[in-house]
Design a protein around this nucleic acid. Structure first.
Length: 846
RNA sequence: GGGCGGUUAGCUCAGCGGUAGAGCACUUCGUUCACACCGAAGGGGUCACAGGUUCAAAUCCUGUACCGCCCACCA
């Protein structure tokens, strides 16, 4: 064998194929086939490859390569998200480290620094996608802050503003006191902690007693504007409409009746603090109450209650409790479990805080988005996720789209001197629209999900260069993680249906979450993660891809362990060596293919055709693991363990040319089947086989061909016979390489003489039963006998045969019992009855 | 509190009405000239539990338990 073809595949040496594919333009759409378009979920520019990406893009790439090979015109549009909060944090941290004074940092200086950072460090993840082998059309790379993307955002915003769907208002939002911005629900995490429930007495103004209110947040008492009770609560009915003296401040506040309080909880009376709780805010709106705000942007107490001014939330609580105690208003304190809301971005406790924010009435878009999924126009895979989407869609609320950040799409609103807001592309247009000069632009930027929501059509050129009829629209597939169904998938559906009047994608494949070997979530901070780049460097991108894809179907989680990648690497080595062997055998292959008529040849070609069909069906259905297993079974079990082995003998016979052609065809085919899953090793082999040929990734996917049922039946029978024979050999104490002089058989071998002799190491096959001591086995209705020497452990052998007989009898008993049951014979499927009858007959005759 | 997954061989998972499968691990044997990241043979499962439907249930229905995830305003 050519020494330049080592016995092990070195993934390091196949990495260069990526650059060659890219250089040759293999990732650009080609041909006139049915277009297949995907816009990938844009990773954050601050991100680096994690296992979730690795799985997601292995799926994308496998599907893209497969469809490309099938002759489809494929375009996978990659991109990146500017990731407002995340990028701003990273850049601020860097500036701080460099000694920049945060207090004097201007917006412009920050933006310059952020762009500089984006240029330097923003492409890390893009290059990691390349290492994974992703065949994305990089010429189409998009960024959510590119000029044309800004145009998309502004266009959508102005349209919605002018239609009255965007408004500004005072609402309670998730406030991150560290980052000093509102944040979305997805950026928060709930955490149960042990806390306290304080029972505070609110005396009636007329001196007739008091109402006790339970609260977990005594520090917000200074912003109380009422106490609410349920209208049906007999304990408090009489108090409704009376006035209370709020503790600490002494402010006079009313007792109001509202459905919100649950009479079963606490005392049934709730203090109403509209500035610090979303429910209270709603109650306040219903009753026309004032919204008092006690905290500033850093969640310190403001001048609402000057005595507390400057205190942190925690200090203010202590002080409030002390003051309540001193006033004799603290009735009792109970242990209580509190659901804290934590900001994922800063780790700080999120404050529910009323503030002026911009909102989008996304409820206006819901009906169409619901319809699209209900009608099946948008299809979720697995379909259970449609329910998740629909449920969320049906409970939509207005969306807070403003963020108090610098990094992002600045809200295209200009204000006139008297504070009137106009949406426009610039100050000039704004002044024109307003009919008077504008004095300033809104400071806030948009929530990152606002721009992400426009992704599929914005990256395809909307609004200026978008052609919904160019075949790429709607896109075919969106593959994403289940945790952003609401924030992203739903938004894209809504925004697309509104702005482009059509769905953005047909299929939404929700892939599994990658957990570690112990079933824990992979987390950098907890150290429970595995870095996919380490796996790529140690074992190769092919191994990582196979390890992930071979476990991914419609499951909701997949566990990654290095053992899986090791198995995958073994597989690539196996393919490598099988190719090496076949390459050596076909060096002198005659060009002209002889007629293929030997059952073994027909069998392997047939098995190949089945594997190809299975892969097609599996990939069509997004069942990645089934696709992997189909390739694995064909290559390892059928091709290597049987066909290759029996070929070794047949290559020495007049079958040589036919075998060579079959080997060659199977190898070519196997490489094609495997290429979407393991692109590097297959490309490397392909190039070794045919250095002068083009890329494997540009080869045609195997066309569907007929299977040979008859040949399959024959060969599978022979395989069973060989297995039985091997078992008997071992029973007879034969060494693995020891040849069998004579094999006797009763029943037809169906032409399998050569196959059985080759695979079972038999010199001569005779019909009949030998005289003398022999051991027997049965397979496919044929009895096989081997003569054995007399020093065999007869007792053990008898023991074994008895056990076997018992097993058979038990089975026969079961079958006879069933067949003897008239109900079964009458009602069961006739095919089943016939099959059982045949099985019983065979057992009985044995 | 609602919803959704999962519970099958030691491990990771297929199977989803006709009486249990794969890969890995394990045991035994084997350095045959593709591959020890290999080959052959083998051991190993009352399919979480309890009812029900059916001639037949791992597979369908109901309920229970445990694990995980998502959603939710209980002060």
């Amino acid at each position: 064998m050519d020494s330049a073809w080592p016995t092990r595949f070195d993934p390091e040496r196949a990495k260069h194929w990526y650059a060659e594919w890219e250089k040759a333009g293999c990732f650009a759409p080609e041909g006139d086939g049915k277009p297949f378009t995907v816009t990938i979920p844009p990773p954050n520019i601050t991100g680096s490859l994690h296992m979730g990406h690795a799985l997601q893009h292995s799926v994308h790439d496998a599907l893209a390569r497969w469809r490309r090979m099938k002759g489809q015109r494929v375009q996978v549009v990659p991109g990146q998200d500017h990731a407002g909060i995340s990028t701003q944090s990273v850049v601020l941290k860097k500036l701080k480290k460099e000694g920049v004074d945060m207090r004097t940092l201007s917006r412009q200086a920050f933006e310059e620094a952020a762009w500089a950072w984006r240029k330097e460090s923003g492409d890390t993840i893009i290059n990691q996608f390349r290492s994974l082998g992703c065949s994305f059309d990089w010429s189409q790379l998009r960024f959510t802050l590119d000029d044309n993307y800004v145009e998309a955002v502004v266009t959508a915003f102005i349209d919605w503003f002018d239609r009255g769907l965007i408004y500004r208002g005072l609402r309670v939002v998730n406030w991150d006191p560290t980052l000093k911005t509102s944040i979305s629900d997805i950026e928060t995490e709930r955490q149960e902690i042990k806390g306290k429930l304080y029972f505070v007495r609110y005396p009636f103004a007329d001196g007739t007693g008091s109402i006790t209110v339970a609260t977990t947040r005594p520090e917000t008492i200074v912003a109380d504007v009422a106490v609410a009770v349920s209208p049906d609560d007999d304990r408090h009915k009489a108090a409704i409409g009376k006035e209370l003296i709020a503790p600490i401040t002494g402010r006079r506040i009313p007792v109001i009746a509202d459905e919100y309080p649950d009479p079963a909880f606490g005392t049934g009376a709730v203090k109403i603090t509209p500035g610090h709780d979303a429910n209270d805010f709603e109650v306040g709106q219903r009753h026309g109450l004032e919204t008092l705000i006690a905290f500033d942007a850093e969640a310190r107490l403001n001048d609402l209650w000057p005595a507390y001014q400057g205190l942190t939330r925690e200090k203010a609580r202590e002080q409030s409790v002390a003051d309540l105690e001193a006033a004799g208003l603290l009735e009792k304190v109970e242990q209580h479990r509190i659901a804290l809301v934590i900001s994922e971005r800063s780790g700080d406790v999120v404050e529910s805080l009323a503030s002026e924010q911009w909102f989008l009435k996304q409820t206006a878009f819901a009906p169409a988005a619901i319809d699209a999924v209900r009608s099946g126009e948008i299809r979720f895979v697995p379909d259970r996720y449609a329910k998740v989407y629909l449920e969320w869609m049906e409970g939509l609320r207005d969306w807070c789209i403003s963020r108090q950040l610098w990094w992002g799409h600045r809200i295209p609103i200009w204000y006139t001197a008297d504070g009137r807001a106009v949406a426009a592309r610039g100050a000039e247009e704004a002044a024109e629209k307003a009919g008077e000069p504008v004095v300033r632009q809104e400071e806030d930027v948009l929530d990152t999900w606002f721009s992400s929501g426009l992704w599929p059509f914005a990256v395809l050129g909307w609004p200026q260069n978008f052609d919904p009829k160019d075949g790429r629209w709607p896109t075919d597939l969106l593959t994403t993680a289940r945790d952003i169904i609401y924030l992203w998938v739903a938004r894209m559906a809504m925004m697309s249906l509104d702005q482009v009047q059509s769905i953005p994608f047909r299929d939404v494949y929700i892939h599994a979450t990658v957990l570690n070997e112990k079933g824990q979530r992979m987390s950098k901070s907890l150290g429970t993660g595995v870095d996919p780049m380490d796996v790529i460097n140690d074992k190769g991108a092919d191994a990582l891809r196979y390890a992930l894809l071979s476990q991914t179907g419609f499951n909701q989680e997949v566990r990654y362990g290095d053992r899986k990648a090791d198995e995958a690497r073994s597989f690539s080595t196996k393919v490598w060596n099988a190719s090496r062997f076949i390459a050596a055998q076909i060096e002198d292959m005659p060009e002209e293919a002889p007629e293929i008529h030997h059952p073994v040849d027909l069998w392997i070609l047939s098995r190949f055709n089945r594997a190809a069909a299975q892969m097609d069906a599996a990939l069509e259905a997004y069942n990645m693991q089934e696709a992997c297993h189909a390739a694995y079974r064909f290559i390892w079990t059928e091709l290597c363990d049987w066909y290759l082995e029996v070929s070794k003998a047949r290559l020495q016979t007049e079958d040589r040319a036919a075998v060579q052609h079959c080997l060659s065809r199977c190898l070519q085919g196997a490489l094609r089947l495997l290429h979407p899953i393991m692109p590097f090793v297959t490309e490397e082999i392909h190039n070794r086989l045919k250095p002068e040929a083009g890329f494997l990734m540009r080869e045609q996917w195997p066309a569907a061909e007929a299977v040979h049922e008859e040949a399959e039946g024959l060969v599978e029978g022979w395989i069973e016979m060989v297995r039985a024979l091997r078992a008997v050999r071992i029973e007879a104490g034969m060494a693995p390489r020891q040849r069998i002089e004579t094999l006797w058989h009763e029943g037809s071998l169906n032409g399998g003489h050569d196959f059985i002799s080759a695979m079972g190491l038999v010199d001569e096959i005779r019909e009949g039963k030998p005289d003398g001591m022999h051991l027997s086995g049965t397979a496919a209705g044929v009895d096989l006998h081997l003569l054995v020497s007399s020093d065999l452990d007869v007792a053990a052998e008898v023991e074994r045969l008895k056990a076997e007989e018992q097993k058979m009898e038990k089975e026969l008993g079961g079958l006879r019992g069933r067949l003897g049951n008239p109900a079964f014979v009458e009602r069961a499927n006739p095919e089943i009855v016939a099959r059982d009858q045949a099985a019983a007959d065979e057992l009985a005759s044995a």
